[in-house]
């Protein structure tokens, strides 16, 4: 959310840096300038506290970053991240497809809602990481188990926001669909999905974060590779530098995923009143 909060544009709480930057190059540039400033400040705090603590368990920012560099070039971190990204993409993609699909069904069909809403409420209150050992027994260690857990966890925010938004679409929209004699396929493509696109995207954005958390949990227990396994493995061998490297890389993945998602969202909502 920070990015959005800071994106306040030319107006209010941008702060002096923001105002100067926006005067120079416009709001988009000011946004990234602010983002960069924030990141640098965070690293500065890290660096400073690590010097204060002065304990090898808590490496400094600079050493952690250089560790990451060497682990990427010399070690296996690149392939570790690659494996996780594929799983994240699969898990998030499937949650999105299933969540939007089921959400549209539940939101736009009264009958489906009557039948399924209790089932959905039942299932979505289960903390699925608890059943991870069962998934491992079922599907073994590896990608399928990890992706399953990601889907079982990240599906719900998408499904619920989509269904809620669809169910509360203005009745007039349905009247217009009928008055324009739209076929069902055309109605969904041109009207019923676009009408709730902002909510669908909000649900998907929550799912990005949830997917990442579920991915790491799944990989810690249900896998023998990936970034989650990398971190837990580093921890169990008391390798605090590798642990920190893994955590920082994980944060980086989250930041990248959210930034990429925001770009997609902006593009998808282009040409709408803000």
């Amino acid at each position: 959310m920070t990015t959005v909060g800071l994106a306040g544009g030319t107006g209010a709480p941008g702060g002096r840096v923001g105002r100067v930057a926006s005067r120079l190059t416009g709001p988009a540039a000011s946004r990234s300038a602010l983002g960069l400033t924030g990141l640098l400040a965070a690293f500065a705090v890290w660096q400073w506290t690590s010097l204060l603590v002065h304990n090898p368990i808590y490496p400094s920012a600079t050493s952690a970053l250089s560790d990451i560099g060497t682990m990427f070039t010399g070690g296996n971190l690149a392939s570790v991240v690659g494996v996780s990204l594929v799983r994240l993409g699969l898990g998030f993609g499937l949650s999105g497809l299933l969540g939007v699909g089921l959400g549209l069904l539940l939101g736009y069909s009264r009958t489906a809602r009557d039948y399924l809403s209790s089932v959905v409420d039942f299932l979505r209150s289960i903390p699925f990481p608890l059943v991870l050992p069962l998934l491992v027994l079922l599907a073994g260690l590896g990608t399928s188990t990890v992706v399953m857990l990601v889907v079982l966890t990240a599906l719900w925010p998408v499904l619920v926001t989509t269904a809620d938004a669809a169910a509360s679409v203005d009745p007039l929209v349905h009247d217009v669909v009928r008055a324009c004699k739209l076929s069902r396929a055309r109605a969904f493509r041109r009207v019923l999905v676009p009408a709730i696109l902002p909510e669908i995207l909000a649900g998907l954005r929550v799912a990005v974060g949830v997917s990442l958390a579920a991915l790491v949990i799944a990989e810690m227990i249900g896998s023998s590779n990936g970034i989650g396994y990398f971190i837990v493995n580093a921890e169990s061998s008391y390798d605090s530098r590798a642990t920190f490297a893994g955590v920082v890389v994980l944060g980086g993945i989250g930041w990248l995923a959210d930034t990429a998602f925001l770009a997609v969202e902006r593009r998808a909502l282009r040409g709408r009143p803000s």
Partner: peptide, 8 residues
């Protein structure tokens, strides 16, 4: 409401 904001 009857005109859709996402369409020209």
């Amino acid at each position: 409401k009857s005109l859709f904001p996402w369409m020209r």
